[in-house]
Structures are given as C-alpha cells and as structure tokens.
Amino acid sequence: MAMKYNWDWSILLCRSPEADPTGAVEPGTPGSGATEFGGGMGQTFDTGAECAQPYFDWIVSGLSWTVIVACAAWVITFSLGSVIGVSRTVENKTVRAIATAYVEMFRNVPLLLQMFIWFFVVPELLPEDAGRWLKRELPLPEYWTAIVCLGMYHASRTAEQVRAGIESIPRGQTHAGLAMGLTRTQVYRHVLLPVSYRIIIPPLTSDFMGIFKNSSVALTIGVMELTAQSRQIAEYTFNIFEVFTAATVLYMMVTLIVVTIMRFVEAKVRIPGTIALGGD
C-alpha cells in the first residue's frame, strides 16, 4: 500500500512567522462565543499559514544546544575521566577503590535513569534552600543538569580508556623511569600519560561522538536540543518524516566533523614508529 503522506520539505526553511490570516481574537476571551471555550469561533492558537512558526530557527537553536551541551559535557568528561582513570592505576588502595566505585556506579546505571535522578531526585535530597535554588533560581536548570549528568556518565567510560591506555604500556617503562630517579608523578607526567593519551585517541573519538548522540537523552528533562526541537516541529506540523530526516543528516554532519577533527589531532600528535598509532 502506497504511503498516504503529503511531503513538504519547505517547512524546514520557515523563518519568521507569516501574518495570521485566520483573524483570530485573543484566545480564551470569555464571552466571545456561545460556549465555555470562548467559542471555537474566533479562537485559535495557531495560524493557518504554511510557516506558522520559524521552524528553521528552531532547528538551528536545537543544533546549537546539542553542540553546547555536548562540548561542555566533554570538558567535564575529559578532565574528570582523566583524574579517575589515573586514580585507577595508582598504588594507593583507597584512591583506587574510590575511582573504581565511581566507574562502576556511573557505567552501570542507564543514562536515562541518571538524567532523571540528577533532575528530580538530587534537589530533593539537598537541604531545602539549596534544593530550591537548584529548582527555581538557577537559570536554565535543565541545561546545567544535562551537562553535569552527561559529563559524569561519560567520564566513567573515558576513565576506563585512560586506565587501559596506561596499562597497555609495558611495566618496564615505569621501572626504567623510577630507576632513572624520576618520582612516580614524573613517571606519569613524562612517560606514561604522553604515550597512553596518544594510544587512546580512537576510543576517545567514539566517546566524544557518543556524547553528541547521548545528548538527545536530555530532552527527557526538558533540554530543547536537536531531537527535542525536531519532535516539537513534528507535533506542530505533522511533517514528521521531513523533520527527522533533517535531524538525522545534521547529527551525521556533526559527528563527521568530530571524526575529522580527531583524525587531524591524531595525525598531528603521532610519534613516528609507535605501533599503536596505525600501520602505515
């Protein structure tokens, strides 16, 4: 059966709302009609115009929030993930245990659930004033929550990559460093970390891309990122296929840009002769 659908790609380009041709009066004015609704007569909340809303601007706004949330979260991910990852390889048992607990906790709970806990449960656990501040006074609470939540979730994954990178370096190098009189910190600083970060660029790349894709989960707490705006437009126009096609293409473009940048970084920092950096 052929699909019954009116394709209309032009809605994606809607900019400023067109003038309202329906002659609507102010909605909900009591007494403007015979019924308790102020009448279906004269009352509407949308215009009959093809471009009732600036859908193009909504997509742009959604895309920018996706990029902002993902990039801000990545800053948390990279810094916190590095600290936790290194902590998992140090001698001190307590530090290692804390780092392990962090990784297991954040890695094993679904992101959707974490988002929900950060947004709805954490403010209730805090002292009343702090909770109130988080809920009502902090501007854009859902955006901050999403950034922290995404950042901390992905930090657990980055930590594992950092640890794997450090552990992939033969122990002999650490021993050699120590034998040369370097302190443990100096061994990390000058021997282990510079090599391991280069090794883990490919998995870090996919994780960075993962943040962009996972940022769509933030729509569940009200972040108006790309997927949320697409849903919004789909509900307004019912041109659902066009909108989600556009969103798909945009996500692919963003992740392709990430891959390109990371490839460039990888090529720039590579140490000639290291096997882990590719065969050519």
Binding site: E26, P27, F45, D46, L219, R231, Q232, A234, E235, Y236
Partner: peptide
C-alpha cells in the same frame, strides 16, 4: 508538554499579553 496544543496556546497568550513566564518543557 512538548509539542502539544496546550504549549501553543500558553505561549501565544503569554506573548500577546506580554507575560514573563518561565517554561519548563516536559516529555
């Protein structure tokens, strides 16, 4: 609620009347 007719109605009235309302979008 995201994408509902309610959302349109509230935003439209708020705009027409110049009300400063903080929106929280839910799924």
């Amino acid at each position: 609620s995201l994408g509902t007719t309610n959302e349109k109605a509230i935003k439209r009235i708020a705009k027409a009347k110049g009300l400063k309302i903080k929106y929280h979008m839910v799924k």
